[in-house]
Design a binder for these strands. Structure first.
Lengths: 140, 140
DNA sequence: CCGGAATATTAGCCAGACTAAGTTAGTTGA
DNA sequence: TCAACTAACTTAGTCTGGCTAATATTCCGG
């Protein structure tokens, strides 16, 4: 019974709700929203095109357009063009955007680090082992 | 380095984003939203007052008012009064609400069960072991 | 060179979160 | 006792973030 996939699903389902709340608290009151943070993170490795960003964040293109508009208004990213294809808009971090990303990441990780520090060494190991499995779940 | 809490925090942070998307897909296209489902779940054990519901779901009272309005319009809950204190509004599942809750829970668990079935037995065990730790994290 | 596919944006809708302000009912203490 | 404070909700207004449908633009294949 303990290994019944349905039973496990029920547990996962309930734990997931808790984690959503945890995530919400983790980013509460920071100078960018959780989504904005995610988009900035996608830009860290260099310019990206709109379609890539939308796909990576599992949203429709118009949704990403609005997000990028806001980030652009805030001076955190700039739009550019692909010289090889005039249909394509590229998006790039400004230096201010890069600084903001670093700051938010630092705060976010610090918050989680504090939570993790309250666990035992063994619990942290159990958690670390499960992370790849969870990541796989999310990608199915 | 692998056991460094900060490093772990970064991984958790990234996995959490994936799980949010997973959760979103899990309830996509269902007859109640994820939040509504959560509220219905809170009512399963009997009538609750607005303040309790808001607190349990970590939202402000006005937010819960709007949610309950929608559920009431949909015929899934009814508002009542506390005879001992006329300021208090109670919220209760209708039989339709109870049926809906059961149906959505079933679909949700079925979805997750399918995802879990794609894992190896060992991965499921790893996941099962980590669930209590994750639950603890969310509650800190 | 023309019609269809690809890339974005605009516009308009809805859910869900917040704060501020208003209403009604209980509580308290001078 | 009753005036003032506090508690429980609701209403109104604003924001983010998601969606679809409709509209440019640009590219590409025949």
């Amino acid at each position: 019974m303990r290994d019944d996939p349905t039973h496990l699903a029920e547990q996962v389902s309930s734990v997931l709700r808790h984690l959503v709340l945890l995530l919400r608290r983790t980013v509460a009151g920071q100078p960018v929203t959780s989504q904005q943070y995610g988009v900035l993170g996608s830009l860290e490795g260099g310019p990206r095109r709109m379609t890539e960003l939308a796909e990576e964040h599992a949203v429709q293109l118009p949704t990403m357009t609005v997000q990028i508009n806001r980030l652009e208004d805030a001076g955190l990213v700039t739009r550019g063009s692909d010289p090889a294809d005039a249909r394509v808009r590229t998006v790039e971090l400004t230096s201010e955007g890069r600084a903001r990303l670093r700051a938010v990441r630092q705060a976010r990780v610090a918050h989680l680090t504090r939570e993790l520090a309250a666990l035992t060494e063994q619990e942290r190991e159990t958690l670390a082992a499960a992370l790849p499995v969870l990541a796989k779940l999310g990608r199915l």
